[in-house]
Simulated assay, not measured.
Amino acid sequence: MYALSDYDFDLPPELVAQTPLAERSASRLLHVEQHAFADRAFTDIVDLLAPGDLLVFNNTRVLKARFFGVKETGGKVEALVERVLDPRTVHAQLRASKSPPPGTRIRLADAFDVVVGERAGEFFTLTFPDDVFELIEAHGRLPLPPYIEHAADAHDEERYQTVYAKEPGAVAAPTAGLHFDAPLLQRLQERGVRMAYVTLHVGAGTFQPVRVENLAEHQMHSEWYTISQDTVDAVAETRAAGRSVVAVGTTSLRALESASQGGQLLAGSADTRLFITPGYRFHTVNRLITNFHLPKSTLLMLVSAFAGYDTMRAVYRHAIEQRYRFFSYGDAMLLTCSNNA
């Protein structure tokens, strides 16, 4: 187990991608094989995968989860929906000068009122007057990551969403999937690459900094996932044929590994707090497509566990030297697992 400071690095601020490229699949791809690196185009992923390999995508859909509102007293409130609990109830983060007590009414987006319920840890329970998803879609704003400095516009509403997004519930995009467009998916299918889906609703906790130097003391945020029997069967068939299970993004990987803790992948739905750091042995995933992550982040720890700590230190040095674009709208890398169970 390493310490938090072992995952720090200096990133020139101009390498943080603020906007997406004109075309989804026009990103760069850093292909990593142990200590060998190859600078490629993302469309080269077609040649880097073999017929019979399985791509596993996270089909979560990002909610327009951010709202600005006012309390009955006139005090301003910012709300970020974290999780939809039922058709009229959510857990949300609230920013206000004073924490609103249960029973407080808040006017959101100057369109409708919600009622504050009991606290659930760091979150507030909010009751909506009508269908949550309809009100969020009609009146909410897309919650771009905190390192993107412009307010979300119509272009972001299209591009900060994968082309295969289906199940609403995330407050952040599974960003490795943003590189795939319909023509690229078609080329992969023609090559014989198979595709399967999981759902993991990415929470705002993915952006929360780790605040303890001793990683054993870190409390991982919770995220909800579901994996179908069809996906379980596809994984089993891929592994039996000796082909690779390729997770598209750390969220797909986290869902697959969370459902594999008994040693084999099982269908079902659950919350996961799985915190993957070096020393973890991967049960299901052989290869990973992922973006470049923040310093001191749990995602940087995850990829270090996957491909090797020393390898990832070298990868990030290379990426900075070669001026790769970082974070959600940035470039990608293809990694191979160094630590399968």
Rank of each mutant, 00 (worst) to 15 (best):
S27R: 03
R40A: 07
E33M: 11
V16G: 03
D10W: 05
F9V: 09
L11F: 05
A41Y: 01
F42Y: 08
E14P: 04
D44P: 02
A36W: 03
D44L: 03
P13A: 12
V32N: 00
S25V: 13
S27G: 11
V32Y: 00
R40V: 13
E33T: 14
F37G: 03
S27Y: 01
A17K: 05
A41D: 07
R40F: 04
A38G: 06
E33F: 07
D39I: 07
Q34H: 07
P20S: 08
F9L: 14
P20T: 15
P20D: 04
D47I: 08
L15V: 12
A36F: 05
A38Q: 10
L11W: 06
R24P: 12
Q34E: 15
E33C: 13
E23N: 13
H35R: 14
D10I: 14
S27A: 15
H35A: 14
V32R: 00
A38Y: 03
Q18N: 10
P20I: 14
V46S: 01
L15T: 04
L15M: 11
L15K: 02
A17D: 11
A17W: 06
E14W: 07
L30M: 14
H35E: 14
E33P: 02
L48D: 04
E14V: 13
F42G: 01
D10E: 14
L15P: 02
D39G: 01
E33I: 12
A36H: 11
E33H: 08
S27W: 00
L29C: 06
A41V: 08
L48I: 12
P13M: 08
H31R: 12
P13C: 11
H31E: 09
F42H: 04
T43H: 04
S25K: 07
T43F: 06
P12E: 10
H35L: 11
P20N: 05
A38W: 01
E33G: 05
R28C: 04
D44W: 00
D44E: 12
H35N: 15
L11Y: 02
A26Y: 05
L30K: 01
A17M: 13
D8C: 12
L21D: 05
R40Q: 11
A41S: 11
E33V: 15
S25F: 07
A38M: 05
T19P: 02
F42P: 03
Q18D: 06
V16Y: 06
A36V: 15
S25G: 09
V32A: 05
D10K: 13
P20A: 09
F37R: 02
A26N: 05
H31C: 07
A22E: 15
H31K: 10
A22H: 13
R24A: 10
E14Y: 13
L11I: 13
R40I: 08
D39M: 02
T19N: 06
F9H: 04
L11A: 05
A38H: 06
L30Y: 01
P20Q: 04
H31N: 09
A17F: 10
I45T: 02
V46F: 03
T19W: 10
L30Q: 03
L11T: 10
